[in-house]
Design a protein around this nucleic acid. Structure first.
Lengths: 211, 211
DNA sequence: CTCCTTACGCTACGACCCGTAGCGTAACTG
DNA sequence: CAGTTACGCTACGGGTCGTAGCGTAAGGAG
């Protein structure tokens, strides 16, 4: 499922239990909900999953990697529904992302693993590969649709296009995360609408809106 | 200095050592640089500061509160220089904030304490009071200047004005943090310029820029 | 100067978690 | 069948936590 044994050449010996993998990741999410990141322990996860602690260490280097894998799958549930306009699409994905960050598993885990990753390059790569970069698809898809609708001009230069997509991604994801976890205020429909107006039309338009 | 004994009514007994306070906070920052958030221990900070471990616990409930106080002062160094235009002001503060996040103390501590705060309301309030809300002054100051220059219209409704300021704050701070710590890519002059264009003029303008 | 009060340094402690070694058993391959 | 790898279990040294207890230091009140 991960980078571990990419279609291994059918090694001999007893194979690893796929059920154990699923049980461990599920137990990890449950432990995140009950205990939060800082009080989650490998022993507790092992007990919940019904496996030995040593089994965890045979598959994951430690708590950081385990939690990344446990929450990564949740982010793949994000979708970009086609609502007919770029503004509507952006608002929808913002609210989806906010709902995801409201879940106690992701709320407590996301910032923690990112904090850990500032001192662990391998962990940083793992997060990028299994969480962050996967969601850039949403930006690319949204732009593509907007261009088809004529809401955005075509960008011939691929390098510029990719750079802009990264910028958009950091702005959207960063703003929602900051609102939800740092400012700790609700990301509701009103906020999503005002944010989208700012993103699409800029500060001048956002500052002069009436209602 | 903090919420502890707000101009205490001159209690009797031996007063707390102000030197110890400064030494502990300095030692905490040094330990963050050397060990990072996760490997920082109360015992190590106490040793570096030349005080007993019990002294730390008499003043701070634990690692979370200690680190918040240790890094909070660093954020007060941010300033908004008047460079003559809103765009230039925004770019400058973005680069300043990015430079602050490049420091190993803040880089490893900021996300970690925010992650902890998702399960600790008192800690969340502490972060808001001593770090986050203090920096909103930059947004208010920037808008005031822009309005004086005629770059932004006046906003008569205070509620709307405050709401917009919060939005701007989340967008700027969130985008920079996400770029620097999650995407882990450099916040350089080029990025700051492109981000500012997006913020001021919106996606349409940012997507159709040539160079 | 003498009480009273609070802060400090130091030691020691139980509790918890870490990550691993060792061993016998289970599962799958050739 | 033998060979190989995974699993469960126990046990362990090492580290950190947060606190209790004690003697001492530094202020204020009389």
């Amino acid at each position: 499922m991960l980078s571990r044994s990419p279609t291994g050449p059918a090694r001999s010996g007893r194979p690893r239990s796929a059920e154990a993998d699923a049980a461990i990741l599920e137990a990890t999410r449950a432990s995140l909900v009950d205990l939060g990141w800082s009080k989650l322990t490998m022993g507790d996860v092992a007990t919940r999953a019904g496996v030995a602690k040593t089994t965890l260490y045979r598959r994951w280097a430690g708590k950081n990697e385990l939690v990344v894998d446990a929450v990564a799958v949740l982010f793949d549930e994000l979708e970009l529904p086609d609502l007919g306009s770029l503004a509507a699409d952006v608002e929808a994905v913002v609210l989806q992302f906010a709902a995801l960050l409201e879940r106690p598993e992701t709320k407590t885990a996301l910032m923690a693993v990112v904090a850990e990753s500032t001192r662990d390059e391998a962990l940083r790569d793992r997060i990028r590969d299994s969480i962050v970069n996967r969601q850039k698809r949403l930006v690319l898809q949204g732009r593509e649709r907007a261009q088809e609708r004529g809401e955005l001009p075509a960008e011939p230069d691929e390098v510029v296009a990719a750079r802009t997509a990264d910028l958009i991604f950091d702005v959207i994801a960063g703003a929602v995360v900051h609102r939800a976890l740092v400012s700790a205020e609700p990301v509701d429909a009103d906020w999503a609408q005002r944010f989208t107006l700012l993103l699409l039309s800029g500060l001048g338009a956002a500052a002069s809106q009436a209602d």
